[in-house]
């Protein structure tokens, strides 16, 4: 930032590459904000982690002011506001539409307000990183198929508890060591969205993807209050307009990437099977309830349920 209303240069940073949905969103933001502010606000987009290689660091950088725009998983924002972890609950949403209704409606609005109250962060939009599915050496159809399966899961206590509740044995492996772990069957399975599975070539060894759809992922696109306050009124309007356009663009790019990856996976001979998610939802209900209680988010959870 600089003095309020002068020329402002914003720095947007992501750990992902320039072809990612996040980078696409940032570019849209840049285009719109530069046009709408008559060039008084400019944006520099940094990709490939050159200003911070992981979300942890990007969020910290935003806090200290060395970057202005980032996208992060709820888990990383949870370093500062634990309630945000709510969005990472398995089977919180039943479909993309359900997700959209929630994050673009009252639920999203409430969380945005909560974050603004507790931190100096300002959520600008809810982005996504695909729908996460189970993949492994065998397809699964019901929770019983997960019995004793060693699955690499995300490092969140709730996510782990959910897999345990389903009978699986969650374990932690660094993402870039996963290919070998699968190849040597140190783990039996993992879970991720189509794009990540394809890009890491995990389908070369784990040939079955089962559509468990346990996580319609939410990513938070946000800035800091400090950055926002440094803009004059007209610039702020341009900024918010750009944020909206960026959110649209990023979501579209994410859907597109996922679809492309899905087709490429199919072409590579990966077997994708549908799963009746109802029993999975039921078995993980106690985990969600416990987590919701710990986070103090009972009311919001109720709201999400009602949107189904």
């Amino acid at each position: 930032g600089s003095d309020r209303g002068g020329k402002v240069k914003l720095i947007a940073a992501t750990q992902l590459d320039s072809k990612s949905a996040f980078a696409e969103g940032f570019r849209e933001f840049k285009k719109v904000v530069e046009k709408e502010s008559d060039g008084t606000v400019t944006v520099e987009v940094h990709t490939n982690g050159d200003l911070g290689g992981n979300e942890d660091e990007l969020v910290q950088n935003l806090q200290s002011g060395s970057v202005d725009l980032v996208v992060a998983s709820p888990g990383f924002m949870a370093q500062a506001v634990k309630e945000v972890d709510f969005f990472a609950l398995p089977y919180l949403f039943e479909s993309r539409d359900h997700w959209k209704k929630a994050v673009d409606g009252e639920v999203g609005h409430t969380v945005t307000k909560m974050v603004e109250q507790k931190t100096d962060f300002k959520i600008l939009g809810y982005w996504s990183a695909g729908v996460r599915n189970y993949y492994g050496f065998q397809p699964i159809e019901e929770p019983e198929d997960l019995k004793g399966i060693k699955i690499r899961s995300q490092d969140s206590p709730t996510v782990r508890d959910a897999w345990k509740a389903l009978g699986a044995q969650p374990t932690s492996v660094a993402w870039n060591e996963m290919y070998q772990a699968l190849q040597n069957q140190v783990v039996d399975a993992a879970e991720n969205d189509f794009t990540n599975i394809y890009q890491a070539s995990h389908h070369e060894t784990a040939k079955y993807i089962s559509l468990t759809q346990h996580d319609y992922t939410t990513r938070l696109f946000f800035t800091s209050q400090q950055t926002f306050d440094a803009l004059d009124e007209k610039q702020q309007q341009a900024f918010m307009k750009a944020a909206k356009a960026a959110t649209e663009a990023a979501r579209k790019a994410d859907d597109q990437l996922a679809e492309e990856s899905k087709q490429k996976l199919k072409k590579a001979g990966v077997k994708i099977n549908k799963v009746d998610t109802q029993p999975f939802v039921e078995k993980t209900e106690p985990v969600r309830e416990k987590a919701v209680q710990q986070l103090g988010m009972e009311a919001l959870y109720q709201k999400v349920q009602e949107l189904k």
Binding site: D56, Q60, Q63, S64, G75, F76, A78, Q79, A80, K82, D155, S156, P157
Partner: peptide
């Protein structure tokens, strides 16, 4: 400065521990 800034933040895997 940084210690103060991140004092109340928590660890990802151990939410009860302050950064």
């Amino acid at each position: 400065t940084l210690t103060q800034q991140f004092w109340a933040w928590s660890l990802n895997s151990l939410p009860q521990v302050k950064q």
